[in-house]
Write a protein that binds this DNA or RNA. Structure first.
Length: 701
DNA sequence: TCATTTAACGTTTTT
DNA sequence: CGTTAAATGA
């Protein structure tokens, strides 16, 4: 198979330029993933580069997985054969691998755990408590943001302290310092640390740096416009004298500056790597002419950007449609109705549609309409699977046995299931444990040595410690699945969640999903890593359902039909950027551009005259971006007054909580919970059932 | 110590 | 509006 087949001249040029720095400026839909994949395959097949000598960085785990699969096909290799595959993954994933291997050199134990946003905020709260800083003057969330921003800019706690001038900043500096020390004793790294510590490792240990520079003969970075300072430094530290670095990106699609991403990295590539070759991919293979023109007109208003001339060989296609609606409920109905009718006539399948919005909160109304119109949907993002309570509980057990210094995880599970150890006992125990030099599990077993806690609490703690010890012994010889099963059994967690309440089934289902996820892993370490770095964009999607997600989550995806809802001033562009300045407004514009260019054949934009926001009705103007699109490509639809026959649809008002109903199969009972179409009913015989309001033929009494 | 009720609070986007 | 943190009583 010729690896250059099916590539256009620019793509082919990029694939064959295997030596020296290369910048690929790839417009939306210009086949950049294809180019990148072919380039890697070309290096392996034609340039005799070993897969292990290639480092490929992607933006999401999903992108890495897809690239691995495509590469497997191109090279006729099994993509599961990790030994044959290049180093592929996100910056965070790569850094974890590097730190597990080499972290000891800078004092990072091989069994560090990874803290997510919740863990970080929890630890900040602890730090504030120890410093006697009340959370009414300073919010843990805001401190977390400050710390994250600082870390992304590679500002450590000492440097932050020296820069702090305002009293608020001085307080944050104190918390930052305390947070860092607590985090280190817990044997944990937060998301930002993963990058930061990798930089420190490569900076402070020249022999390690030299080793990996030699290892990675070729480095490829996708979505280069979204790299932050720490990531930029990692790249600079890993590139060797041969400078075989290839970066791909599009400054028009930079939408993560709030996370520290700096798209001047891509603008400065030629300065950083003198003599770099630049290849522009300007042919768009995704969207019709009208969609592309409308999107280009929007982005054209930005001042800070490179010049590109995206073009398509496709025809103009259908005009971009703009729909004005009275309120957000009507907006959602329009979307659901159009999806529903197009599927009904067989023109499309549900998976052809995506609905994109600026903020997660907007998904609520859409969900309600989708349920009403019986349109199957999936939400990408929102509450992540690994953020569910029961899943986090089990993960906390796993983390604690893996890293017995992890106080956050211990605090989470010490009384889950309830074992009579309250806040006061926990505090006293931890105080004593810190002074003993023992890790948490050891301290639990030896809690007899102290009289700081009550006899009752001692019993519970010793018993917990013994269970954890048994679990710890399993780490090296058992699979993650086996360990989780044992956790559930030993701690009585399974009984704890199956308490007969209606939510029990959901929780059990979540645990089953966790168990089946775990089966893909052979050791606990890898499983915990996956869990920590799994992103919302990584959830597998079904083509039988309409996809709902934020504009940010849509990056890199494409759909035949795209609805962008909430095209209003205050939402897109978001109200917060008004005060922030022109740079932030330009990012909103790029966000609109990213959303529009996800569409292949049809693009619908909707806005509502009024909308519920913060529990109050607000009135927004149409987004300025609509006006920028140009009337020749964007048509405003005349939305005829539509009457939605209510009796055809299930309405929430039909049933309410507390009502008594009779079911043909289960007898009479009381409704105790309503979730869309799902009614949870406690029947008189004591059984609790979840029934579908539509099919259950319930009779009101 | 724990469960239930009440109050406050928040909306950008996420690895 | 909906969720989560504090407060209260058992």
């Amino acid at each position: 198979m010729n690896l250059l087949d099916g590539l256009n001249p620019a793509q082919s040029d990029a694939v064959q330029t295997s030596l020296g720095p290369l910048l690929i400026l790839a417009g939306a839909g210009s086949g950049k993933t294809k180019t990148l994949t072919h380039r890697i395959a070309y290096l392996i097949a034609n340039e005799s580069v070993w897969p292990s000598e290639i480092l490929a960085v992607t933006f999401t785990n999903k992108a890495a997985r897809e690239m691995r699969e495509r590469l497997g096909l191109l090279l006729c290799q099994d993509s599961n054969n990790r030994g044959f595959m290049p180093w592929m993954g996100t910056f965070h994933g790569i850094c974890v691998r590097l730190l597990r291997l080499e972290g000891e050199a800078i004092g990072i134990g091989h069994n560090f755990v990874i803290y997510d946003e919740d863990d970080r905020q929890g630890l900040i709260k602890q730090a504030m408590k120890q410093l006697s800083i009340g959370d009414n003057e300073i919010k843990a969330k805001s401190v977390s943001g400050q710390i994250s921003t600082s870390k992304n800019e590679m500002v450590d706690s000492s440097e932050y302290e020296s820069l702090a001038s305002l009293p608020y900043q001085k307080n944050v500096a104190k918390i930052y310092k305390k947070y860092e020390s607590l985090r280190k004793t817990a044997g944990a790294l937060d998301f930002d640390d993963l990058l930061l510590e990798a930089v420190r490792l490569l900076r402070e240990k020249p022999e390690i740096r030299a080793k990996w520079q030699k290892q990675f003969k070729h480095i490829l970075i996708d979505e280069y416009q979204d790299t932050n300072a720490a990531q930029y430094n990692i790249i600079k530290l890993l590139v060797n004298d041969n400078r075989n670095i290839c970066v791909v990106g599009d400054d028009w699609q930079s939408i993560y500056s709030w996370r520290g991403a700096d798209f001047t990295n891509i603008l400065n590539f030629e300065r950083d790597f003198p003599g770099a070759k630049v290849v522009k991919l300007e042919q768009n293979y995704r969207s019709t002419g009208n969609i592309l023109d409308a999107a280009t007109n929007v982005i054209a208003k930005n001042v800070q950007r490179t010049d590109k001339k995206l073009w398509t060989a496709e025809g103009a296609g259908a005009p971009v449609l703009v729909h004005a609606l009275p309120d957000e409920a009507e907006e959602a109905n329009l979307v659901a109705e159009r999806v529903s009718s197009q599927v009904a006539i067989g023109a499309r399948k549900f998976g052809d549609f995506a609905v994109l919005y600026r903020t997660n909160a907007q998904s609520y109304t859409l969900e309600r309409s989708f349920i009403r119109f019986r349109v199957p949907y999936q939400i990408i993002g929102g509450v992540r699977f690994y953020d569910r309570k029961e899943v986090k509980d089990i993960i906390a057990y796993l983390r604690l046995i893996y890293q017995p210094q992890d106080r956050m995880s211990f605090s989470r599970i010490v009384n889950v299931p309830t074992r009579g150890v309250g806040a006061t006992s926990l505090e006293k125990f931890l105080l004593w444990q810190a002074g003993t030099g023992m890790d948490i599990v050891a301290a639990l077993i030896n809690v007899e040595q102290t009289s700081i806690v009550t006899a009752r609490a001692k019993m519970a703690l010793i018993s917990l410690g013994e269970k954890l010890r048994i679990l710890q012994l399993m780490i090296d010889k058992s699979s993650p699945t086996e360990i989780i099963e044992r956790v559930l059994e030993l701690t009585g967690y399974r009984d704890y969640i199956s308490d007969g309440t209606p939510q029990a089934e959901d929780r059990e289902a979540n645990l089953s999903s966790l168990l089946s996820d775990a089966q893909n892993f052979v050791n606990l370490s890898e499983f915990l890593e996956e869990v920590a770095l799994m992103s919302s964009a990584d959830t597998s999607s079904s083509d039988q359902k309409v996809t709902l997600m934020t504009l940010h989550a849509a990056k890199g995806l494409e759909f035949p039909v795209v609805f962008m809802v909430g095209m209003e001033e205050g939402i897109l562009p978001h109200a917060r950027v008004y005060e922030a300045g022109p740079a932030e407004l330009e990012e909103e514009r790029r966000l609109a551009y990213v959303g529009m260019t996800r569409a292949r054949e049809e693009l619908h934009l909707t806005y509502a005259g009024s909308r519920m926001q913060f529990g109050q009705r607000g009135y927004n103007q149409v987004s300025r971006f609509i006006g920028d699109m140009g009337s020749e490509v964007a048509m405003t639809s005349v939305s005829e007054p539509r009457v939605i026959p209510d009796q055809d649809f299930y309405s929430d008002e039909l049933f309410s909580i507390g009502e008594t109903v009779r079911s043909a199969s289960f007898g009479t009972g009381e409704i105790i919970e309503i979730d869309g179409l799902a009614l949870t009913i406690r029947f008189d015989d004591g059984r609790t059932k979840k029934l579908n309001a539509e099919y259950a033929r319930l009779e009101k009494i």
